Amino acid sequence: MLKNRLVADFMLDPNRVEDKKCMEISLSTTHNNVWSNYYKEYLKFGKEEVRANVPSDLTQDKWDALCDLYETTTWKGKSDWNKANRGKNSTGHTCGSKSFIVFYEEVATI
């Protein structure tokens, strides 16, 4: 009986706004992670040999399309911007002058 209630509570309805938004966020995150992982694979090789080293789960055509994307100035600009932001935030998460952990501990005690 409890199992049936739990299953009923966790049914995703693509017509329901909240469920649709949740699915979009989840799929978008997964999509971005996959592209990021392929980009890491792309960076392992030089420009001449990268297209010959196709990941096992892609076809040559799809890999070539991704390589074309990774070679655009738009992609390179976004990549450089993200690298710069990661460098700025390497000290950890903060909330003003407090570290995230201190801030979290203060909120937890309220």
Rank of each mutant, 00 (worst) to 15 (best):
K62G: 05
K88Y: 04
F45T: 11
P14I: 10
I101K: 07
T74L: 11
D68V: 04
L66Y: 00
T73S: 12
A8R: 15
E48F: 06
G92A: 07
E49P: 01
R5C: 06
G77N: 12
D9G: 15
S97F: 06
D64W: 01
V102R: 03
S99Y: 03
K21N: 14
T91W: 00
Y70E: 11
F103K: 00
L12F: 15
T94I: 07
E71Q: 13
S56E: 05
I25E: 11
S99H: 04
N85H: 11
K98S: 11
F45I: 03
Y70C: 05
K21S: 12
K3A: 14
D61A: 14
R5W: 07
C22S: 09
I101T: 14
R16I: 13
D19M: 08
A52S: 14
E71G: 01
G92Q: 05
K21T: 15
V107D: 01
Y70Q: 03
D64S: 12
E24F: 03
Y42D: 08
N85I: 11
N85F: 08
Y42H: 09
K62E: 14
S36T: 11
T30D: 10
R5F: 06
Y70W: 05
A84L: 09
N85L: 13
E41W: 13
E105G: 01
P55L: 00
R86I: 04
T72P: 06
S79G: 02
N53S: 10
D68Q: 10
V50L: 02
S36E: 12
D80R: 09
G77L: 02
S79M: 04
G46I: 00
G87K: 08
P14K: 03
E48D: 15
K21I: 15
A108Y: 00
E18W: 01
N89C: 13
R51N: 11
T59K: 09
C22R: 13
L58I: 09
L43F: 00
P55M: 02
C22W: 01
T74D: 15
T29N: 06
V17G: 01
N15D: 15
G87R: 01
T72E: 11
T74R: 07
N53W: 03
E49D: 15
T74V: 13
N82S: 08
A84I: 03
E41N: 10
H93G: 10
V34E: 08
L43Y: 00
D57G: 02
S56K: 05
F45V: 07
S79K: 08
R5E: 07
L6D: 12
S97M: 03
V102C: 00
S28G: 15
W81Y: 13
